[in-house]
C-alpha cells in the first residue's frame, strides 16, 4: 500500500503563481505607461501594442507590409538558412568526428571562424549579396551551422570504443564503422543540434534584418525606431518572441515523434 500513493497533487499556489506573475508584469507595464512614469515616446503600453497588432493584420502602413508578410518573409529566410546549416553542418561534423583527415583540414578553420559572431559578417554580406534574401540566409546559416558541427562531432566522438573494437575484429573498414556505428551513436546529439541550431538561426535572423532588409520582423523593429514609434518596436519584438516559442514547441513535438521511432 505504501507504494500505491504516487498521485502528485500540485499545490494551488504553484498553479496560480505563474499566472499571477505574468499578469502583474503586464499590469505594471500598462500602469507605468498610462501614469506617465515612463514617457510615451519611450515605451508603448501592452494595450497599444495589442490594438496595433490588430491594425497591422490588414494595414501595410507605415512600414510597407502587413505583419503576416513580415513574419512570412522572416520564416522563409530562417528556414532556408536552417536547412542549409543542417545539410552542411551535420555531415561536416560527423566526418570530422571519425575521419582524421577531415578533422585535420576543417577543425583549424572552423575554430578560427567560430568565435566571430555572425552579426559581424553583416557588412561583408551586404557587399556580397546586397540586402536581398542571399545575405540574410548567409548570416542565418553561419549562426546555425556552428551548433550542427559541434553536436555531430561530439556525438561521433562519444561512440562506445568497445563497439569499434568489436567491428574491427570482424575486419570492418573505416567507412563501415562510420556508417554502422558512429552515425547511429551520434543521432541523439544530432537531434539536440536540430533544436539548438533553429534557436540560433532565429536569433541571427533578427540581427541580420536589423541592418539589411526591406521586409521581415527585424525590419519592423528597425522601422519603429526610425519612425519613433515605440508601439511598432514592441510589436516586432513580441512577434519575434511568439514565433520563436511556437517554433520551439513544433521542434519539440517533431523530435519526440522521431526519437520514439529510434527506441534506444
Amino acid at each position: 500500500m505504501a507504494y500505491e500513493e504516487v498521485k502528485v497533487k500540485k499545490p494551488l499556489s504553484l498553479i496560480l503563481l505563474p499566472i499571477l506573475s505574468v499578469l502583474t508584469f503586464f499590469v505594471v507595464w500598462e500602469l507605468m505607461v498610462q501614469l506617465d512614469v515612463v514617457p510615451k515616446t519611450m515605451l508603448a503600453a501592452p494595450t497599444q501594442v495589442g490594438s496595433l497588432f490588430v491594425t497591422k493584420l490588414s494595414d501595410p502602413n507605415p512600414d510597407g507590409a502587413t505583419i503576416f508578410i513580415h513574419a512570412w518573409v522572416s520564416a522563409q529566410e530562417a528556414f532556408i538558412g536552417y536547412l542549409l546549416a543542417l545539410g552542411i553542418g551535420l555531415p561536416l561534423g560527423l566526418f570530422m568526428g571519425w575521419f582524421g583527415v577531415v578533422r585535420g583540414i576543417a577543425r583549424p578553420l572552423f575554430e578560427l571562424i567560430r568565435p566571430i559572431p555572425p552579426i559581424a559578417w553583416i557588412p561583408l554580406t551586404i557587399f556580397w549579396f546586397g540586402i536581398g534574401l542571399g545575405g540574410k540566409v548567409f548570416i542565418i546559416w553561419l549562426g546555425g551551422v556552428v551548433p550542427c558541427v559541434i553536436n555531430a562531432f561530439v556525438g561521433v566522438r562519444m561512440t562506445n570504443p568497445t563497439l569499434i573494437q568489436m567491428a574491427r575484429t570482424y575486419g570492418a573498414s573505416d567507412w563501415q564503422i562510420f556508417k554502422t556505428l558512429c552515425v547511429p551513436s551520434a543521432l541523439p546529439m544530432v537531434f539536440g543540434a536540430l533544436q539548438i541550431a533553429l534557436a540560433c538561426c532565429w536569433t541571427n535572423l533578427v540581427g541580420a534584418e536589423l541592418l539589411a532588409a526591406d521586409q521581415g520582423l527585424g525590419y519592423l523593429i528597425t522601422m519603429g525606431r526610425r519612425l519613433a514609434l515605440p508601439d511598432l518596436v514592441v510589436l516586432g519584438m513580441v512577434s519575434v518572441g511568439l514565433a520563436g516559442a511556437a517554433i520551439g514547441v513544433l521542434i519539440d513535438y517533431v523530435e519526440r515523434r522521431l526519437l520514439a521511432g529510434i527506441r534506444r
Binding site: 568497445t162 573494437q165 568489436m166 574491427r168 575484429t169 570482424y170 573498414s173 554502422t180 547511429p184
Partner: peptide, 16 residues
Amino acid sequence: PKRHNISFVFQEPTCL
C-alpha cells in the same frame, strides 16, 4: 581480420 574470420566476444555487452 580483413581476410580471416576472427570473432571476439567481449566481456562487456557489445550489442548495438
